[in-house]
Design a protein around this nucleic acid. Structure first.
Length: 352
DNA sequence: TCTGGGGTCCTAGGACCC
DNA sequence: TCTGGGGTCCTAGGACCC
């Protein structure tokens, strides 16, 4: 039997800001896009509970948040600061567990099956982790505990804010039974819609569906759906490897088909990427662009060249990809430039 | 009413090679 | 006239996550 925990930082970005400015705790505070007096195009990345009281939440359009609470504190992202706090949390967790799987900047899975023998020990252990993070990193978190990652994740959702929740293996199925399908980790809005159309609304209902019928509709993903609904998840906690791709994106202030504006945006994103790759000593092989149009549909175009660490290649390739694929002159809302096929050349003399 | 900026994984077809 | 099976790489799109 396994003991898996998910440690999820509470309202992470704003919690980081509150360390520098404790007075923000009392004030509705939002980290995200510039609201621009209600005209901003971005979203709320995170907000504290003082802001949530008013119905503001993550991923809400910043313009909508501004309408609700124009006098809230609006802060821009300070990504490198959050990253350093995240690293701090990682090191603290690392003192409690051999293997730490970092899922995102503010989420960590650990497997304590070897360390702990009793589920009840897990609660005590989680408390110690939570306290260590609170005293050493000055940050709040919530912890979900179960026998697999899926249920640990769901347990953590219920533990928020700042709680710990243990769901024993025997209770896992009933724990998720009444949940809507979209609330389950791994089922998003598209799949939920399709499942609803097939007559399944809750985990309990989906759990009764035959694997065969799910496979008819979803192919091999049907097996995955069956497992999720039945609280089954055999996946291991694995330490994350190096990044597989790095990208930079930008949403235009207003949708554009102006080639000069688009080219200069490509150049800027490419140069930012180049700087990051050089500082991290990473070479790349594939360059891609992503275009989001006014109707939110997207297209991707990529080209693989020989492995290189020449940042100039990014802009050059991205610009020609755009030229080759900009037929129709559709208006573009968002533009992204990405490199993949990454290799570290820290230890190599040179690629050339 | 409006909807970021990162990422990951999966699938499927075609090219190419043995 | 008929033409395999396996493997890898590449491109594009889609879904999901925070």
């Amino acid at each position: 039997m396994r003991v898996i925990m998910l440690i999820d930082m509470d309202y992470f970005f704003v919690a980081c800001e509150e360390i520098k400015r404790p007075e923000l705790k009392q004030k509705p505070t939002i980290v995200g896009a510039d609201p621009k007096e209600g005209k901003g195009r971005g979203v709320v990345m995170t907000c504290n509970y003082a802001a949530r009281k008013f119905g503001i939440h993550s991923a809400m359009p910043i313009s909508q948040a501004y309408k609700i609470k124009p006098d809230a504190e609006y802060l821009p992202m300070d990504y490198s600061y959050y990253e350093s706090k995240s690293n701090e949390v990682f090191s603290i967790i690392k003192t409690f567990a051999e293997k730490v799987e970092q899922v995102s900047i503010d989420e960590f899975f650990i497997d304590l099956s070897v360390t702990l023998s009793e589920a009840s020990d897990a609660l005590e252990y989680a408390k110690r982790i939570k306290e260590a993070i609170a005293t050493r990193a000055k940050l709040p978190c919530s912890i979900g505990i179960s026998e697999n990652k899926l249920i640990a994740k769901m347990a953590c959702e219920k533990a928020k804010p700042s709680g710990i929740k243990l769901v024993r293996g025997a209770d896992a199925k009933s724990f998720i039974a009444k949940m809507k399908l979209g609330e389950l980790y791994g089922i998003g809005s598209k799949t939920e819609e399709r499942l609803n159309a097939l007559g399944y609304t809750t985990a309990e209902e989906l759990a009764k569906a035959s694997i065969m019928s799910l496979m008819e509709n979803f192919g091999s993903f049907g097996i995955e759906l069956h497992n999720i609904a039945n609280a089954i998840d055999e996946s291991e906690v694995v330490e994350a490897g190096d990044a597989k791709s790095i990208s930079r994106e930008q949403t235009f202030e207003s949708d554009t088909s102006n080639p000069a504006e688009i080219s200069s945006s490509i150049r800027r994103l490419a140069s930012e990427l180049g700087t990051e790759l050089e500082s991290k000593k990473i070479s790349f092989k594939t360059i891609g662009i992503k275009l989001r149009y006014s109707d939110f549909s997207e297209s991707l175009h990529g080209r693989t060249i020989r492995q290189t660490n020449q940042p100039g290649q990014i802009a050059e390739t991205a610009l020609s990809l755009f030229k080759e694929n900009s037929e129709g002159r559709r208006k573009i809302r968002k533009l992204g430039v990405r490199v993949s096929g990454l290799t570290s050349y820290r230890s190599q003399k040179s690629l050339f």
